[in-house]
């Protein structure tokens, strides 16, 4: 029997080896290599050697106004989209948590924004946000008169952030919806029946039964969405390249001005910030 366990373990190592090599070589090594790059003046040609300059990049970045502007834009984008996707997902999940004809079809339709390729969805929204003939301006200005005039949502640096936030909420609320709906469906109906016998109102039932049951899934959604949206690049850049969140700032530093070392240092700062947030959130908010 002893030999067999040894063999099993050996096979286990062999089977997991490709995964370990792939993740080690293409995730863990690059993360460490990124730190190394951030301490160097990186040659524009990747085959040429780099010069060590210590923490010079970090000092430059932390005293650079543009960095802090991008940082604030990232915070604004992430906080509004995390709240927006979670609340809309929660609302729609509660709405659909009942039996009605065509429910599974509608659930499938609601998932479409999440599975459509970003490039297609971004083009659709660009058209909607068009300053001259876009539906969005038409409805807001000509139909509802909520705004005085048509706005160039995509290209104006001032308004593009709102377009990007709306697009992100549209695209990602279905994920929150799906997770919350699954959790709602697992809450036992007897809890509500007992509450009704005790004369609880709809709001009381929601506050004392539904919300506590959803605490874990909403906590998980908030942390995942925060991490993902802090790193979000394509959904922002493909809709409007004038919204300079940190990932877009890093991308342009690296691949438009070829300041690889500086860009590597900014990504290191971004990672430390996200990691710090995770630690804080897990300890203080989730109390794990």
């Amino acid at each position: 029997m002893e030999i067999k366990t040894d063999q099993e373990a050996k096979l286990g190592y062999w089977l997991i080896l490709p995964t370990v090599l792939a993740i080690g070589g293409l995730i863990l090594y690059p993360v460490i290599y990124n730190l190394w790059l951030s301490l160097h003046k990186v040659n524009m040609n990747p085959t040429q050697p780099n010069t060590f300059i210590g923490i010079k990049h970090f000092i430059e970045i932390l005293t650079d106004v543009d960095f802090w502007t991008a940082f604030r834009t990232s915070i604004l984008f992430t906080s509004t989209t995390v709240v927006g996707t979670t609340l809309l997902g929660l609302g729609v999940a509660i709405l659909l948590n009942r039996k009605f004809p065509g429910r599974s079809l509608i659930r499938g339709i609601i998932l479409l924004p999440y599975v459509t390729p970003v490039i297609s969805a971004a083009f659709g929204w660009k058209y909607l946000f068009n300053p001259v003939f876009g539906m969005f301006n038409y409805i807001m200005v000509d139909v509802l008169s909520l705004m005085p005039q048509h706005i160039n949502w995509i290209e104006s640096p001032r308004y593009a952030i709102f377009a990007v936030i709306i697009f992100n909420i549209w695209r990602n609320f279905p994920f929150a919806f799906l997770m919350i709906l699954a959790e709602l469906q697992s809450i036992s109906g007897t809890l509500y029946e007992a509450a009704e016998v005790d004369g609880a109102t709809g709001w009381q039932k929601f506050k004392h039964i539904t919300l506590p049951e959803l605490k874990f899934v909403i906590g998980a959604l908030v942390i995942l969405r925060t991490i993902w949206n802090f790193y979000k690049f394509s959904e922002i850049y493909l809709l409007s390249s004038s919204v300079e969140v940190l990932p877009v700032y890093i991308y342009e530093k690296a691949f438009a001005t070829y300041s690889f070392g500086e860009a590597a240092a900014i990504s290191a700062i971004l990672f430390v910030f996200v990691f710090g947030f995770i630690l804080f959130y897990v300890r203080k908010v989730l109390e794990w």
Binding site: Y29, P30, V31, K232, A264
Partner: peptide, 18 residues
């Protein structure tokens, strides 16, 4: 891996790929 977004990997991976 969840903690590392694509934007953190793109610079070192570009250097490695090159």
């Amino acid at each position: 891996v969840y903690m590392f977004g694509g934007v953190l990997l793109v610079i070192p991976l570009f250097q490695m790929i090159s």
